[in-house]
Design a protein around this nucleic acid. Structure first.
Lengths: 213, 213
DNA sequence: CCGGTTACAATGCGATCGCATCGTAAAGGA
DNA sequence: TCCTTTACGATGCGATCGCATTGTAACCGG
């Protein structure tokens, strides 16, 4: 099967007719829009189909059940987020660890409609991951990478003498992640404004990037 | 079946027949047990009734709808947690701000069955609070109190000379809360062990409680 | 002792869910 | 051209949901 043609960008044998991946992405993004508004649990296949402007049968055609759809959307979101952060980092043009870390942290926070939706989606999936091993696996893959990346940045800064040699890069990486991860919910619940949270991030980076101590 | 009458411990006029509060607490705790296992969204009135060992009609008798039940359970949980932490703090017998902070932070983390359930319940309700203003209000009340309490502890430590005067108590309080709040999910998802997280908390407290700097 | 209130069980209703099934139109290889 | 495969729509089924209704037994004040 898989007759149809993947819009054959390369000459090699490609599926055909309809681009499955494209359709799946359409569905996943409809799901994202709904999730960002109403949370993951209340979203039904029918709603997703309606949001995507297609019949429910079509959604079923591309995902054999709901879990598969959710899982695909989760992975799609992870890729999107990664790409978005990478773009931001290169856009600043400043390769210093501190700038990179700050850019990453701020991009993880819900500071506009896109990132807010992204954050909500992450929480919705997290809740489900607690009961669904397949989803937990997706989280398990991604987060340690971020930890390592943060720790590496700190080690680079230590090598450059911008961060005291006495600090523990792995522990600090955990703290940085916690800062972004937890404070997002403060913003969403209205405990603190985005500006408050950014100031805390900067406060902490100031304390971290202090050669003395 | 203990038909009526509040067991009238005091002679004064008590509601009547059955202690409504007691029944509500029974229901709320059945709900908590279910939530800790399966998350909030999948829990139905019928399941709660079964877990509580009563008929669904009885649950309806004490809560006129599902939202009211959830809200009551959320408030009940907040009280429980507060009492549990207060008990731990007084149990240590050490009134130093550092010990108190550490005790609070560790008790907020999911480190045993009780606190794990507690943490899961918190997340489940948080998700719902994003779409339900009445629930968001419950969170909005509690969290700032914790922030202020943490900041006060740090100010006390500063007055005693245990924490550098240069640190910002409010910002540090935000960081401490983030540490407990975010790292709980790391434990639950299996990124890090409880021991890892505790070590990060201690690492951070070490850095914070350094008079110099 | 009796009428009203309360505690609880049982049942039914309409909505909605995920999923399976079936029908149809079109495309492509033989 | 025919025949298989694919893309998609439409519909139906069984389960479950929250909630309303009704029935009933026990209590309590007058």
């Amino acid at each position: 099967m898989r007759v149809h043609g993947e819009a054959g960008q390369d000459g090699t044998h490609v599926p055909k007719q309809v681009d499955h991946e494209e359709r799946r992405i359409q569905i996943a993004e409809a799901l994202q829009r709904l999730t960002a508004r109403r949370g993951l649990e209340g979203v039904s296949l029918r709603q997703v189909a309606a949001e995507a402007g297609m019949s429910m049968g079509l959604v079923q055609h591309y995902f054999k059940n709901k879990d598969e759809m959710l899982l695909y959307a989760l992975e799609h979101r992870a890729k999107q987020r990664e790409a978005r952060i990478a773009a931001k980092v290169t856009a600043t043009g400043d390769p210093s660890p501190r700038t990179i870390l700050r850019t990453c942290l701020l991009e993880l926070l819900p500071h506009d409609k896109t990132t807010e939706g992204d954050y909500l989606i992450g929480i919705a999936y997290f809740v489900r991951a607690l009961a669904d091993p397949a989803m937990a696996a997706v989280f398990r893959e991604g987060v340690p990478d971020v930890f390592r990346f943060f720790a590496d940045m700190i080690r680079q800064a230590q090598a450059a003498g911008d961060v005291a040699a006495t600090v523990d890069p792995d522990q600090e990486a955990a703290v940085l992640w916690a800062l972004a991860d937890s404070q997002g919910s403060n913003i969403l619940l209205g405990h603190r404004t985005a500006a408050d949270v950014v100031s805390t991030v900067d406060y902490y980076l100031d304390r971290l990037f202090t050669p003395g101590n």
